[in-house]
Design a protein around this nucleic acid. Structure first.
Lengths: 224, 224
DNA sequence: CTGCGGCGTAAAGATAGCGTCAAGACGGCC
DNA sequence: GGCCGTCTTGACGCTATCTTTACGCCGCAG
């Protein structure tokens, strides 16, 4: 069951959306100003937040910023203005998508599906299995021969990125920026150390890896 | 049969609500001030409490706070004021929903259905049992060897979140935001203290936990 | 054949996070 | 006001984890 928090100060819109989304099987929470939006978001760990930018108390962009300080929950922004500044500001603050009013319900539903697909992938994805090991992204667990394997946070981050891009080449820069931040793009030694550890823990023959492959000078690749 | 406690000092409103809700099949109890509200709530284990904020004796927010110290029963707040401070205060204290007077009966009924649906999810859950202890989310009780174990409100909140996500990793941020609010995301020390207490109370060998596991640097996990 | 860059491996040093204890603050209750 | 349970906060040793350094291997180009 996908849960949504809708934030809008116009009671009519709020109600319409609430009813329509409920009818389609979403669990819906509502708020009609910024303060209660933040409060509700903290209370209920929803999958998506639909946020109107024009709120009576706090500026919508500010609401996004505060949400982003602690949660990665995707945010879809609603706005009456067609201005592009608005849009850029909201997206910069961390919004994931943007719709200008008036909008058709179908459009909103489409975008909702789009952003929630990403989280749904994580939440209900079946475990990924290879000849040597099994990775369960939803539960954040790895096992080999039904034996659970302990991974450190960094080991897990690297493995997760590779698993989410099966067959694909993931560059060293991608890994370094996503895990350590943009200022670490030169620290390729980190990757060597952690890839070695991952192979030692996961591969049957760490010296001749079959699933965690190196592309010399470029990056790494996961083969299922 | 769903039971409701209505608290309001205006006799007329109290009577109108009582009649209308009875007519729709609810079991209704009433109170006209804070003290008797707390008293009635303790006497009858109702499903929902409808609470007017402007009471003659105790401040409405205070009533919510005291209720919350021992029961998770959902509270719908009624208020004459439109101010947002009020609202935030009540929600912070633990209210579940909020309606400003004057309001239509249909709106109240809708919210009543909404909150009681939410609790229904909880109340139908069978108890969770492990080798060491049993947790009954519906009755909010924990036992070990048929001996009931007392948990403080915060201990319970943590345990409940973990139990609702069996096998899954629950991040420190999830726990901190859901229990203390988004501004406490750095206070990981709280978690260490309370996890230690939970283990001391629940685990057979608190030093080597089997059901409440730590994922260093990330969060905690419950294994049935 | 020799030097070089990139890689894998091992191990040492630095750091951050954990569990634990205990003292103090706080609030409800008699 | 005083008691009691609960929550917050600080200090400590310990361990896991991260970072850094060192070294040998390999392929390649000069």
């Amino acid at each position: 069951m996908i849960s949504v928090l809708i934030v809008d100060d116009e009671a009519q819109i709020l109600r319409t959306l609430e009813i329509n989304l409920r009818a389609r099987g979403y669990t819906v929470y509502t708020a009609d100003d910024g303060a209660s939006a933040l409060h509700e978001a903290a209370r209920h760990p929803v999958d998506v937040i639909i946020l109107d930018l024009g709120l009576p108390d706090i500026d919508g962009v500010e609401v996004i910023r505060r949400l982003r300080s602690w949660t990665p929950t995707p945010v879809i922004v609603l706005s009456a203005r067609h201005g592009s500044d608005d849009k850029v500001g909201a997206l910069d603050a961390g919004a994931d998508d943007y719709i200008t009013k008036p909008f058709g319900l179908e459009e909103l539903l489409a975008r909702l599906r789009a952003v929630s697909r990403r989280t749904a992938e994580t939440q209900d994805m079946p475990p990924v299995t290879t000849a040597a090991f099994t990775v369960d992204l939803a539960r954040r667990r790895v096992s080999r021969d039904d034996q659970e394997i302990r991974l450190t946070p960094i080991e897990w981050s690297i493995l997760e990125i590779l698993i989410r891009n099966p067959e694909k080449l993931v560059t060293q820069q991608q890994l370094l920026t996503q895990i350590w931040g943009p200022t670490y793009v030169r620290e390729t030694q980190y990757l060597r150390v952690y890839m070695a550890q991952l192979r030692r823990k996961l591969e049957l023959e760490p010296a001749t890896p079959r699933h965690l492959l190196t592309e010399a000078g470029v990056g790494y690749r996961f083969i299922p």
